[in-house]
Amino acid sequence: MDLRCYVVTGNQPAAKVVRVAERAAAGGAGVIQVRSKPIAAGRLLELVEQVAVAVAAANPATKVLVDDRVDVAAILMRRGLPVHGVHVGQSDIPVTAARELLGPDAIIGLTTGTAELIEKANRFAEVIDYVGAGPFRPTPTKDSGRPPIGVAGYPGLAALSRVPVVAIGDVQPGDVAKLAGTGIAGVAMVRAFMDSPDPGELAARVLADFEGGM
C-alpha cells in the first residue's frame, strides 16, 4: 500500500467523483477513499462500486477504501469488486469488529490527531494498517474538534505511532514537501483533488514533491 498520495472524495455528483478518482489513480495516487457525505447507503454502495471499477481499470495498484461504512465495504468485497477496506473514525465500528468482518487481508485505517489518540491506536497496531492524523489546519470539510497539528506537530506523532501516519485536514499541494520531512507516510487531500482541473497531474506532482521532501 502506497500512502504517499491519498485522495479522499468529496460531496460532489457521482460522475465527477468517479472521474476524479479515475484520473488521480492514473496519475499514481496510491489510495482513493470514498467519502461523499451526506449520502444514503444504497447510493454509496453504487458509488463505491463505480469508483472501484474505474480505479482498477486506470491503475490496478491503487487501493479503494470506504469511509466509515464497513457494511458497504464488506458487501462489495464479497461480490469480488476491487474494494480493499475501510477508514473508520473514533466513534465508528471498532477496528477489531471491522477486522473480524472484513478479514485479514483488508486495509483498515483509523482517524487520530493527538498523542493520546495515537497511543490508543497503538494498542491495535496488529489490527490496523495506518492512522490518519489531523487536522493539519482547520478545514471546512470536517470539524474534528481537535486543534490543528501543523507541520511542527507531525514528527512527534509519527515517532510515537506504531503504524504509518497520513496527514489530513486542508493539506494543499504546497504543503507536501514540508510534511514529507516529518516522518509521515503520506498526505491525504480532499478539496485539492476535487477542485483540480487535472487530478492525474496533481497526483504525479504530489508524489514527486513527497519524494523530494523526504
Rank of each mutant, 00 (worst) to 15 (best):
P94D: 09
V70S: 10
V206R: 06
L117H: 06
E126M: 04
A24D: 07
E201K: 14
G80S: 09
D129S: 12
D195A: 15
F124P: 05
G10Y: 00
A52P: 10
L207T: 15
E49M: 05
P94N: 09
V190S: 05
A180T: 02
Y6C: 03
L101D: 00
T182R: 07
V72C: 12
V20S: 05
R205L: 11
N59M: 07
P148V: 09
R43V: 08
V66L: 05
T96L: 13
V171D: 08
L76F: 10
A106E: 05
G183W: 06
G113I: 11
D195L: 13
L81M: 14
N59C: 06
A74S: 12
A29P: 09
T9Y: 02
G80Q: 08
P148Q: 15
P135A: 12
A41E: 15
P155C: 11
S196Q: 11
L65A: 07
D71I: 03
S36F: 02
I128W: 03
R79D: 13
D175I: 12
V64D: 08
A52F: 04
G174N: 06
A177D: 06
V83S: 03
V127K: 08
K178D: 15
V64E: 03
A159I: 04
T62D: 03
Q90S: 12
A115P: 10
L102P: 02
R78G: 01
G181P: 04
T141D: 01
D92E: 06
A133L: 09
N122T: 00
R43P: 04
T141R: 03
A121W: 11
A40H: 11
I93Y: 01
F136W: 10
A188W: 08
V95S: 02
A185T: 09
F124G: 11
G186N: 03
R23I: 13
E100D: 14
P94C: 11
A159N: 06
